[in-house]
Nucleic acid binder design. Structure first.
Lengths: 116, 116
DNA sequence: GTAATATATGAACAGTTATTCATATATTGA
DNA sequence: TCAATATATGAATAACTGTTCATATATTAC
């Protein structure tokens, strides 16, 4: 049996934690969002799109890498609803999905002392 | 040569994006934070610690899994400065690192329509 | 000192993921 | 219709990551 100095306090926290734990599905959806923006290559795309909407060719120019790789990454960001796409003639134009995206980026940049 | 309807506008965005892109090291540090909280198992630990500080044994109780797995996860969260640790006798007591952590969680939960 | 408890860690394996390559789809202009 | 351009995608592979198992470290009680 486990004991620690703050046994009762911690045990109450444990019970509360279990009671207030989001269900597996919600945890998974939140994790998926973080996973989408946890790779440097995808993160760069988000940083680039702070400047406004861009088509794929220009995103490739801004962040580097091949068209194919960027396209795969764009799909993941789109599926996580971090960016949105619209067609404009031959081009697909991407932009940040909503204000949450920028807010999260800014929060974490502050957290790691990175000025953006 | 690439062309699109908003050629000049996009090109300016591309140039601005390159100019304002954080350097590789900063991108990496931001990505590392998101990576740390992009696994359901680690995310659950953060959700659990919303209730207050807990020692490892109680975290294991709250989130499930083995002591070893949880311990590995705790290390990653600690290295990403999402949680902090203090020793209390035989126990190591963990808690959320600062207010940013909760703020980021709440933002993303809102984003995916998950009430926490 | 030893035993017991709490936590951490290294190595190995299994599962996941990012990139590359080749190719497919969609749009435009002729 | 066909050619050119822009973007997307399936499959394969290489790199990465999470978990498990065994073991190590640190603290307390005796």
């Amino acid at each position: 049996m486990h004991t620690c100095d703050h046994e009762e306090l911690h045990h109450m926290a444990t019970e509360a934690a279990k009671a207030n734990m989001p269900d597996e599905e919600d945890v998974g959806r939140v994790a998926a969002v973080f996973k989408a923006i946890s790779e440097p290559s995808r993160l760069k795309i988000l940083f680039a799109l702070r400047q406004g909407e861009m088509c794929v060719y220009h995103i490739v120019e801004a962040v580097g890498g091949t068209q194919s790789a960027v396209s795969h990454q764009l799909r993941m960001l789109r599926e996580a609803r971090m960016i949105k796409a619209r067609r404009d003639g031959q081009n697909i134009v991407y932009s940040l999905a909503d204000e949450h995206v920028l807010a999260v980026l800014e929060l974490v940049c502050t957290h790691v002392n990175c000025r953006i």
